[in-house]
Design a protein around this nucleic acid. Sequence first.
RNA 1: GAGCGCGUAGCUCAAUAGGUAGAGCAUCUGACUUUUAAUCAGAGGGUCGUGGGUUCGAUUCCCACCGCGCUCACCA
Length: 553
Amino acid sequence: MSSQSLSEAAGVSKAWPFEEARKLIARLATANKDEVVFETGYGPSGLPHIGTFGEVARTTMVRHAFRVLTGDTVKTRLIAFSDDMDGLRKTPDNIPNRELVSQHLGKPLTRVPDPFGEYPSFAAHNNAMLRRFLDRFGFDYEFMSSTEAYTSGRFDAALLRALERFDEIQAIMLPSLREERAATYSPFLPIHPVTGVVMQAPVLAHDAKAGTIAWRDPDSGETYETPVTGGRCKLQWKPDWAMRWCALGVDYEMAGKDLIDSVKLSSRIARALGGEPPAGFNYELFLDENGQKISKSRGNGLTIEEWLTYASPESLSQFMFQKPSAAKRLYFDVIPRTVDDYLGFLEAYPDQPWKERLGNPVWHIHSGEPPQPEALEHGDGRTSVSFAMLLNLAAVANSDNPAVLWGFLRRYAPDASPENHPRLDSLVRYAVAYFRDFVAPKKRYRLADAVEREALAAVSAKLGELPASASAETVQHALYDIARPIPRYQDLKAKGATPERPGVSNDFFNMVYAVLLGEERGPRLGSFIALYGLAETRALIDRALAGELVGAG
RNA sequence: GAGCGCGUAGCUCAAUAGGUAGAGCAUCUGACUUUUAAUCAGAGGGUCGUGGGUUCGAUUCCCACCGCGCUCACCA
């Protein structure tokens, strides 16, 4: 496992981050640059979502693969670019103070007040949300504000170049637009000197030498001559993207498949500006359970908060690593499987040769340093605990208390604890959350009839007599002895059963599950009661007999 | 109209360097604690969408076709 074999394996790895990184190396060979810039962009709404995570996570994987391929001899940067100079198109539905915001329609988001009253502007609020989001996952990035880049003059040279190539840009853009739109299209959008609105007005004239455009305000009829520099104009989206690539020297940017045409147009514009469009690829979109595109407005699919309620960020990275070029359905059911995929890869990693390690998602997820897998030690071996198993266990334990699950785990591995298995503990907590939200609400309790009430009362009385520390075995036998005399539950066909000492049929236990747990099946009752607590079980029986569970279920 | 993705076991999906198809769940069988599986062992089940081509050999590469679905064509 020398570093030699790592770099050899990296050179031929078929894992997609390496394939992407190789595109960059090829690009670098002709570009004569000493650093590589990765970019991810964010629209005006700025609110981070699961796709935001995916794009940054995937870009970070390519960046890391590139660093390994080049032996970290080339500087890399990841720019998180916020389009906060875009005009506010419509008032969002999900904000307070909508009337305040609606007075500023059309202005750059950095000049719209923050409806939440916490930041100097709406854009500042959204940008803060974005950064908090990215920081939460520990992404390494440089934040960049479009407004700041424009007003600081950082884009000035590229803007003047764009003005110079005005006609070339129009020649690229106009054929892609409908006739009526093409008639008024301008790559430059002046900021109205009086109202501050981002104007979509036809350009009457452009003067590359003076660095200005002339345009007419359609409302007042007044004409203005506005410099394209210093934040007094911004560019329309596709030219904007192209200009930014050139100004910032962006080498790599990926985008969703819905942007294929935009990437093509922006790339042509970038060449017209004398630049080379970045490498990158178009990833497939995420679909919901029914194969529909996930959209925030429709609220289908899965949100990142939902994912992180039931599984770790690493498992989400695992999902994002898998085949970006294939459409993936992203809905609740994929979580447990993805988590277990991740755990499986984590477990396989230490024993793999480099060639396979570099194709192993956990190498990419953890930037080449995946953590040790956590397994339970028991007897002569180690057992890894899968998420599916924990979900099952949570249902069996019928508890949303992690300590109860740990009680079951400790029966298996007495030395295990949340302290010495922290990641397993978080897995337990996720499983419990799943139980609480998806299993518990589906419980359907039923009322006990006269015979069942009597049996349960007898169980409760018996539990009252036993010491609180009674073993699972003791409780189990006590249950048999209670059910045995009841004709309804006698089973003469049970193994070892005699007419004098009949066996106990499943019906007894099924009754307990249905009445006490609201389930058709359940845990081995002796074990369950011993762990759940004798007093707690008696309280549960009291509630069941009082009919409280039926209402609650 | 343009650009994609996907068609593999009943279901959900794998198969990263062409070489006799795998997993999980489901189903069935057996063992075991006098019920219930965080148990163990095993079984069944697929002409890898259709038809061609390249090859000693194709689920894999190429072409065509069929089916399902998505995206774009207003704005970002």
